[in-house]
Design a protein around this nucleic acid. Sequence first.
RNA 1: GCUCGCGUAGCCCAACUGGAAGAGGCGCCUGACUUAGAAUCAGGAGGUUGAGAGUUCGAAUCUCUCCGCGAGUACCA
Length: 915
Amino acid sequence: MQSDFLSISCGVAVESTLSFKLQSHMNQVRKQYPFAQFEPRWQQFWLENRTFRAADPGEPGSEKPKYYVLDMFPYPSGAGLHVGHVEGYTATDILARYKRARGYNVLHPMGWDAFGLPAEQHAIKTGTHPRITTKQNTDNFTRQINSLGFSYDWQREVNTTDPAYYRWTQWIFIQLYKRGLAYVAESPVWFCPALGTTLAEEEVLQTDDGPRSERGDHPVERRNLKQWMLRITAYADRLLKDLDTLDWPESLKDMQRNWIGRSQGAEVVFTVKCDNPPTTGEGEWKVPAPDKVTVYTTRPDTLFGATYMVLAPEHPLVATITTDAQRAEVDAYIAASRNKRDRERIDLSRAKTGAFTGAYAINPVNGAEIPIWIADYVLMTYGTGAIMAVPAHDERDFEFAKTYSLPIIEVVAKPGAGGQGASSVASVTAASGLAVVGAAAAAGLGASTAESGVTAVTDAEDGACFSGDGISINSGEFSGLPTEEVKTRIIAWLEERGLGCGRVQYKLRDWLFCRQRYWGEPFPLIWKDGEHSAVDEAELPVLLPEMADYQPSPDGAPPLSKATDWVNRGDGTMREVNTMPQWAGSCWYYLRYLDPKNPDKMVDPAKEKYWMGDKGVDMYIGGAEHAVLHLLYARFWHKVLFDIGAVSTPEPFHKLYNQGMITGSDGAKISKSAGNGASPDEVVAEYGADAMRLYEMFMGPLNQKKAWNTQNLEGPYNFLGRIWRLLMIENQEGEWTLHPKVAATADAPVPDEMTRALHIAIDGVTRDIDNMAFNTAIAKLMSLYKDTLSKAEVLPRSVVQTVLVLLAPFAPHMAEELWWQVGNREAGASPDGMTTLSYIPWPVADPKWLAVDEVEMAVQVNGKVRGRVTVPVNAAEPDILAAAKAAQGVDEWLAGKTIRKNIVVPKRLVNFVVG
RNA sequence: GCUCGCGUAGCCCAACUGGAAGAGGCGCCUGACUUAGAAUCAGGAGGUUGAGAGUUCGAAUCUCUCCGCGAGUACCA
């Protein structure tokens, strides 16, 4: 029953009757220590004394080395702080407090990513202005964050919706615009009817139910719209290359590499042979018949194996090359494929479909005529929208060729496959050669591959298709050479003749950078006669106009278009009415923290140089869900700012760490409807902030997914209670005072074994924090308590204070309170003489206490432990072996055996291998 | 389908990177304190490291093949 109540207590939605029972139960649970009294007291102390203020260059404290530890700032939602926020913020807080104690000038700021859809949707529903909602939410987040004792420098708070902030977002946009990195284009873009706005590629997820919005999970569709784009592709190569310089999780770098999707290949020009040129029907040329079509391929080495060509259905040449005979079929296919898109469904079966245009292309390397098809497995948005199909060496082409009985020619032999395949190919080539292909192609659809004889040289019958590297065959002068070499040679061959060239291609698309919403940064742009220009920088910020009605227009026009006084500037120019996407403000907020109130500059160069140093942010912690969104966008903006000299590092975030997601008790994502979550407010009320922080760090490795379990929370909570009761004692009135065994023996000598245990703990905790292994650091503190502190008759103050400094990053309130209770007071600092331990130097483990004289080693015979032996730590190998042979239990296993090999692992074990 | 990560005690997790399977916590059991329970304190039990092969004197750790869970990605030529 008890655990039921506890788990219910953490649910977001609690029914009133249960909630009542819960209360009565909770009241019975005795608080292990009076956290409700001292936690708020220290939070107030820190705020009032600006304990965590970071020193800007020139100020006292700035002579220390800097350490910039950053959280991904939150979107202040109405739901309030989430246990996932607490996880990341606790981790950075531990580092911030640890680094302060280690003598660093620590920058640890917090702010609000406050533009965005939820506030606007709430506004549409309730009529409350997003600004009001945002203020309420940031107030609530601030309260919750402070209730957890995070050591932010609140003097540096930023808010993306503050005109003094977004003025500089607009300024950066103008710099992009001036450099030609922002442009308007009409293209097929993602549109979300439910959200009433376009979305970037990165904001659309491909799901089993078709493409859907990353935010809100609504269906999205392709529409041809005129939109503002940012030319992030111009930075594709640098964004890719500089990943190598970053200390990020390899998996995250892979995701960015994958998204950027660099591939190296070639463009090849094919000549179109159109025996039956298209006409308008009155016998006139519709357009001049095209005579060239360019394809992109990453496998130019397989050019001899191209047996047909495929254009995307949207390819502009389709209309002009299609023969009259094929026109009906082609038009029907185009219509069907467009319809397929509109059905917002992904075809999981991947059945390949297409239509023959009636036209042929001529392969530049061998003059073979190959049929030109259209198929929706070729995308207009990648490469040239046209491919040469090599069914023998490409899975997709292979499937398509099988479906439509197109010829398949093998031109790459598997390495090490032996001479059999190669020779059979060679003989067929010699006998029939490419002429067979031409004949098959000319025969068109009707030609069966069996009749053509081509399949004899392929693996088609066993359903195989070899897409790896190998040795070229059947490829004229290139036969016999390995794939890589053939690629180079064929590209050179094509380039010499003007028939193609090497080319690098990226998957990354330009960034769709405008939204048809109200609650976002207005663009600093004006229009006149269809021409756009940037406003003068002196006009910034371009303020969001006050509006009574921020409903989207039924015709799809952005809400700002209704603010006519704002749109029409009176001089014949009109303002741009789109707004920027939410990512804009988060692209550079880490820079504004450095100089948050500067009215004249985005950031003062001296401050930027000091805080960003050589490598930028020293530690950035957040979830992996932003891998190809925020983290890619911010790197792009930062590089542009670097290019214009506004920042001094090529990358913004040198070290990045991904926190693992905290799921509900059922392992599923925490949601209100599932009721599987925990609310930080409730946990803090019941167990206190220190216990919540300690538990979230104790759950497991920071970078792994973990399930919330309130029962497990009681472990760290009990530990804090034990530490408290170790030093404090409760009288009959329920007041806590310092325990006599601490107070009476302040100057007591420290037993060697206690000193040793303390130094082992210092060493272990320090290394664990440096390795972000907070769970094991906490376990080491628990061991120190259990094995040493709890057993001590007297607790020397020096030991207690060291323990409190070690505890402080994890449980800062209790550490501060006990620090004060054991007598660290300062007259005048506060009415009670409160003084912080935040800047007390971190203890250093003395190696002499870590050293041991003797070690116990395991003695194995043939890998099985048969005894143990204690030897001096620096014993020589012969001595160890002698002792090991004599060890009890070992001798009998060695009796009468020949030792063939001795293995000695210093300080660990001895293994005798006997025959 | 492809890529990557993870499987250790009933549960959450350690294991110095190839060297005695166990640091810590939850739960469970025993004892102390209690009229009794709760809380607290002291102690204890608990194992084929997902399965199978391989490398090695020695494998939780390295290699391969499966199984299970999770994340990313999805016709990118």
